[in-house]
Amino acid sequence: MMRVVWAMFRASWLTATSYRLQTLMTLVTLWVTVVPVYFLATALQPTMAAAIADEGKAYFPFMLTGAIAISLISVCVTAVPAAVQSGIGSGFLESLLATRAPRSALVVGLGVYPIAWGALRAILMLGAGVALGARLHVAGIPLAMAIAVLVVVTHWAIGLIAAAMIVAWRTAGPLTTAVVVASTLLGGAYYPTRVIPSWIQQLSAVVPLQYGLRAFRQVLFGGSDLATVWSDVAILSTFAAGLTAIGYASLHAALRYARRRGSLSHF
């Protein structure tokens, strides 16, 4: 399985880097994102300090991680559906499915490059934040990375459900947009969920990002350990496991449905 995933990653990477100027511009864009966040967060620091006391008190790293998280989950939820959609149109999906490679490896392989590239950009943005004065607890990096992986897996799994909908019905409806918008507004990206009205807070309970972001910030910027963030990590892990199972099952069912209808290559 890893050999297949690596081969697909390599082909996607070579394709992406064949657009040389675009690759360079992507890196330049990171700075263009981080610098305005720095100035805005610095201006809002006095207003937000009390509300984010548990997550390091500094609003710049708080806001930066929110921006990074939204960018990353957008990639995660759209990577596989976008690849599937374009693969159906070009016939590439059929070419992949006609090989003996395991379906699970193909599904991972379809999304692995954009997600890996998104993760690298996230790390570079975080590094830019550190260069601009964000302070992080080095000891918390391994746990923060593990939490980030759970966030990625959770949203990649939502992407599998969206991909299944595309395979079956040629549209994912509002699913991916709804997840990104809900995560932006209710996931604690730019403000902690406890400052929003209580009835909306109840809605945010079903937004996985809020658990991941809260734990990530507490660990990386607040110096908390696993014991402190355990409940958030447990809920996020449950989301990751449950959504992955649902995502795989739905994609498997959708592929069978499309094979039965003969619509794998009909867009």
Binding site: A7, M8, A11, L14, S18, S90, G91, F92, E94, S95
Partner: peptide, 16 residues
């Protein structure tokens, strides 16, 4: 069918 990586060369496509 158009199931190839268009920005790669022939060898890379076959390798995959």
């Amino acid at each position: 069918e158009r199931g190839l990586f268009w920005r790669l060369d022939a060898r890379e496509n076959l390798r995959l």
